[in-house]
């Protein structure tokens, strides 16, 4: 009998949490299941990542990024020298993977913001034939296996692909090699220091694959909000004589800023962590390694501690993402409350 059922529990109107009038036992069981599940599948692996990463102490962790340098006057045996060179090469590859991951994210993110805003705008503020189809297409990457997506790019742009003859000849400048050359060659003082040829098995393919798997995030986080807000505020701004740009930057953008940021966070998290699609188009060439690919290589070389060390960086990014996401959700909810 012990007060298991409270038939007269007051229902608090307006409270976000419905008061559960189920038995205390059921509540405990459900909470226990959830906690056990999260512990087994999230908490333990996460702790394990850091545990393994620090298995050779803080020094071991540090040396994955900054391998030990012997004093200049030290006399080293041949095998010592070889091990030092090996360590330096591994660290260089790790740094290159971090650099590529950040660079890909930096290229993908602005494109996704533009695409996401355009797609959300088109599907919510205009009525046109094929709108439903477009909305469904935006969700496609959620339902396609990333590996399949990567393969599609290979089949499309690879040597025997439909666009192969064009794509394999494509020469494109490396945007990160842009540097100052002065005015000696004309009015344009900047020049690219490096070019790449081809698409598949180059960083460009990594960018394409990452765009494919991340593009729904921004659009999807904006759509419900934009749909809800309708077009009245924009029309009001236009009727007051504001230009289209002004209306967009002063009215539309401020109204969706938290949803946009939320989409950006999700997009970044996915861009950093994507493995399948990127793996297929990278060709397993070292210079095409992003952090997840680098982790796999270290693992395959039986360098578990280094693999977990790089993984711990991604895990750390994930935790930051989680915090940022919660903050944005909280801010968005507060704003939504203020506007009602």
């Amino acid at each position: 009998m012990a007060g298991a059922i409270t038939a007269r529990a007051p229902i608090s109107i307006g409270s976000k949490r419905a008061v559960a009038t189920e038995s205390v036992l059921a509540r405990r069981v459900l909470i226990t299941i959830t906690v056990v599940f999260l512990t087994i599948f999230v908490l333990v692996p996460l702790i394990n990542v850091f545990n393994q990463a620090f298995s050779k102490g803080f020094e071991g962790y540090w040396s994955v990024f900054f391998p030990p340098q012997p004093p200049d006057d030290a006399t080293l045996t041949f095998s010592q020298k070889r091990r030092l060179a090996e360590g330096a090469a591994q660290a260089a590859r790790t740094w290159s993977s971090i650099g590529l991951t950040v660079a890909v994210a930096a290229v993908v993110l602005p494109l996704n913001i533009i695409f996401g805003l355009a797609a959300a705008w088109a599907t919510t503020k205009f009525n046109f034939r094929g709108r439903a189809l477009l909305t469904a297409l935006i969700d496609l990457p959620f339902s396609v296996s990333p590996v399949v997506a990567g393969l599609v790019f290979v089949l499309l742009l690879g040597r025997n692909g439909i666009l192969g003859p064009w794509a394999t000849q494509l020469v494109w400048p490396d945007p990160f090699s842009l540097h100052w050359v002065g005015f000696e060659n004309g009015v344009w003082p900047l020049a690219f220091g490096r070019t790449h040829t081809g698409v598949i098995f180059t960083p460009l393919a990594i960018v394409l694959a990452t765009i494919f798997v991340t593009f729904p995030f921004v659009a999807r986080s904006l759509t419900p909000l934009m749909e809800n807000q309708g077009t009245d505020e924009e029309l009001a701004a236009l009727s007051l004589g504001a230009s289209g740009w002004r209306t967009f930057f002063k009215i539309t953008l401020p109204n969706v800023k938290w949803a946009l940021l939320y989409g950006v966070i999700l997009c970044l998290a996915r861009a950093f962590g994507e493995f399948g699609a990127v793996s297929v188009v990278s060709g397993h060439i070292d210079v095409n390694d992003t952090m997840p690919l680098r982790i796999e290589k270290l693992w395959n070389e039986y360098n578990n501690q280094a693999a977990f060390t790089v993984a711990s960086v991604l895990a750390f990014v994930a935790v930051i993402t989680l915090v940022a996401k919660s903050v944005v959700e909280w801010k968005a909810a507060r704003d939504a409350e203020r506007t009602n």
Binding site: L235, A236, L238, S239, L240, K250, N255, T339
Partner: peptide, 27 residues
């Protein structure tokens, strides 16, 4: 719309939520 010299008041008011009353009127 912006060049007709009209003032339109929407049924939903369509006030700019993120701007103060002053800034709404000054828009």
């Amino acid at each position: 719309l912006g060049r007709r010299g009209i003032g339109f008041v929407f049924q939903s008011y369509a006030l700019f939520k993120h701007l103060s009353v002053f800034e709404n009127i000054a828009f």
